[in-house]
Design a protein around this nucleic acid. Structure first.
Lengths: 237, 237
DNA sequence: CGATATATTGACAGGAGTCAAAGAGGGTGG
DNA sequence: CCACCCTCTTTGACTCCTGTCAATATATCG
């Protein structure tokens, strides 16, 4: 029941009565299976629906005028990566699948009708977009203050944390089907340097990222390198 | 009438009937004059109010575990830089005045009461937080894809655009009372290198940032260096 | 007019980019 | 089942952008 992921995630920060959950569930379209590298929405599009990642991965990206692509964030099961399109409509970045993915869609008009009488649900969705913004802020810190190895470690630590919250980490190992070239675009590094960092990590037993799977070797070290602090739990909604 | 700035800004992306505007205006507290470097909210705080910059500048920042400070964004008259604290409460970063500033406050409880019966206003505020998120995304692109000079140029171009929208740019010149050390923290560069970039800009007549004032020399060049594209206008709310 | 913060310089080091070529892996079609 | 192709990964050599350190000059302010 893949929609549950989305609900699970919303409930991480918002209390939602079942009635709201049901209303939301009822307007999610049947899941669509998308191959990797499928564009879900493109910069400049006007959103008419938003999507829910049911399984697999997606990423958001933007190309700067110099032609370089910057990956802004990665998304996992439960995420609604273009929710901000509900109030804002005009997409300012692309959203693409990173792996084969199951994606559900929610029509904006249907969602608006549901929200009219359910302010708590509207608020939960607002929060969801703000948690998203908070991750962007942390990403800015990551890019602005850390070395190549630190950035990489941070990315892995963040992913582990988010995947963990969704129950997708087992035996300190998780799926992450990404190429080094995309890692480079996310971290603001060159492919060559990404490769160098990954090899150092392997050699030192920090972690091993290979063939779509990340194996965490020395979690302490990763957290130290990435300066990652576990998110506080959500006592303060 | 400094509150007008906030209204002007909200109306950049949302249509708001006067009735909503009045409701909002009525709960803004009298302006408080704050000296430079005053902390408005601190990471870890629970928000009970949000602020409106009436005049002057503020910035948001976060310190990474390595002790380095990253400045996330600068804020100008009309901005509500901690609006996200309304739904999210727990601050994940600091908010500080950059210059002496006039700041108004809006109590959360009062605001919630106003919002209950005004979904359009709630939506406008949601949008406001999303525009904010959109700027963070652009900042990620800036840090991830551009060289030192490019980042600096982008910052100036962005500021010029935002200050311009508020009517705060005259004769290709505007106020921006910042030290090179803070610029460094924003751009993810060292102070020394910031200095070098600024000198090159002066020498080449690109721009002159000195004693709290930015003078734009060659706007074309700035936009080219910073790869800045004017924001589309807001036809797509 | 000191005292402190900020800006500027110069010399040097090093992390990360670039270029170019060689391996590996994974599909695909014959 | 193997050859071929294409993408992805890995290496090595070299460059250069940006950081670091340390000293000096300039502002600013009480």
């Amino acid at each position: 029941m893949p929609v549950e992921m989305m609900i699970r995630k919303l409930r991480l920060h918002s209390e939602l009565p079942n009635e709201n959950i049901e209303a939301l569930r009822s307007i999610v379209t049947p899941v669509k299976n998308m191959p990797e590298d499928s564009v879900i929405v493109r910069e400049g599009d006007l959103s008419t629906q938003c999507c829910v990642i049911m399984s697999g991965f997606a990423y958001r990206s933007k190309v700067s005028e110099t032609g370089k692509r910057q990956i802004l964030s990665f998304h996992i099961a439960g995420d609604m990566p273009d929710l901000q399109g509900l109030p804002l409509k005009l997409m300012d970045h692309d959203l693409t699948t990173l792996s084969p993915a199951q994606v559900g869609f929610i029509n904006h008009e249907a969602l608006e009708r549901v929200l009219v009488s359910r302010p708590a649900l509207a608020r939960a969705l607002w929060r969801e977009t703000l948690v998203d913004a908070s991750l962007f802020r942390q990403w800015i810190v990551n890019l602005g203050t850390r070395s190549a190895a630190g950035r990489m470690a941070y990315l892995i630590a963040e992913l582990r944390q988010r995947l963990g919250a969704m129950g997708l980490v087992a035996n300190e190992q998780f799926d992450f089907p990404i190429t080094q070239s995309k890692l480079a675009d996310a971290l603001g590094l060159s492919v060559v340097h990404v490769n160098r960092v990954l090899q150092t990590f392997r050699a030192e037993g920090v972690l091993d990222l290979r063939r779509s799977v990340v194996t965490l070797g020395d979690l302490e070290k990763i957290i130290e390198l990435g300066g990652f602090e576990a998110l506080e739990d959500d006592s303060a909604m």
